[in-house]
Design a protein around this nucleic acid. Sequence first.
DNA 1: AAATGTTGTGCAATCGGGTTGCAAAGTCAA
DNA 2: TTGACTTTGCAACCCGATTGCACAACATTT
Lengths: 137, 137
Amino acid sequence: MNKEIDDKLKLKNIKPTAMRQLVLEVLLQHKTAISLPELEQKFEKADKSTLYRTLKTFQEKQLIHAVEDGTGSLRYAVCDDFCTCEPKDLHVHFLCIKCNKTYCLHDIPVPEIELPEGFTFENANFVIKGICKKCNF
Amino acid sequence: MNKEIDDKLKLKNIKPTAMRQLVLEVLLQHKTAISLPELEQKFEKADKSTLYRTLKTFQEKQLIHAVEDGTGSLRYAVCDDFCTCEPKDLHVHFLCIKCNKTYCLHDIPVPEIELPEGFTFENANFVIKGICKKCNF
DNA sequence: AAATGTTGTGCAATCGGGTTGCAAAGTCAA
DNA sequence: TTGACTTTGCAACCCGATTGCACAACATTT
């Protein structure tokens, strides 16, 4: 099997079943974040709930992160190798309103915000909507 | 009928039906953003699709704005009087993961982000999750 | 290898938010 | 009052997410 894939699974302590290898392969190939329904379409016959649980496992083990891009379905993208999904690892996402793809802007961290007194920070979801490079030309 | 409510409707060119007055009243009373299902519960017998379309109308006329807070349902809050829902009017939202309420942080504008070349900005959704003041004490 | 426990998978069903079609009721102007 | 337009209520539907259950795959112990 593909070395990179098995390495990534091992790195995050995920047992490398056939299903998981396939799913991770699709996730890695896909340049933009992908939703469960989209993932389903990539497979001829895989079961929805299996895919669902595979994504959940990946997410728990911090192999992937979820983006709430407001399209009505959560989208997932592979984390950087040493991401622990903590505040410092958070980045901005971009949803193209034309092609409906969601990009990870890995280089753009979510800006720190000074919250009102008494409010404490746990997590953040920052999605910018607009037109992506491809659709702009 | 309540003067404030009718004024707000008139200001945004919305015909003041009984239903709309009631819905706006609830929205104004409610300190945090409210979802369609939550709104439904505030009424004994109002119809879901009527409420749905009322919210849509309010949103189109920029009386309210929607927040995608990742709870699975859109939440709505009344805009400031002269909000036109343009980038300059965007503010950060805060979702308390304990009481599940979504606050408008009116005073905290969504920070400007320098997008990668070729990407253009249209809109943004920035939700911070954590514990709110009430739940922290 | 057989027996046992644990984990993963497939199928079917359910839940819940959002949305739509349609007909009846209400509004308004001529 | 008539006719055009808008709003409302009801029922149905769509679709993403989630769960229960049984069986399969795998690992572990004897």
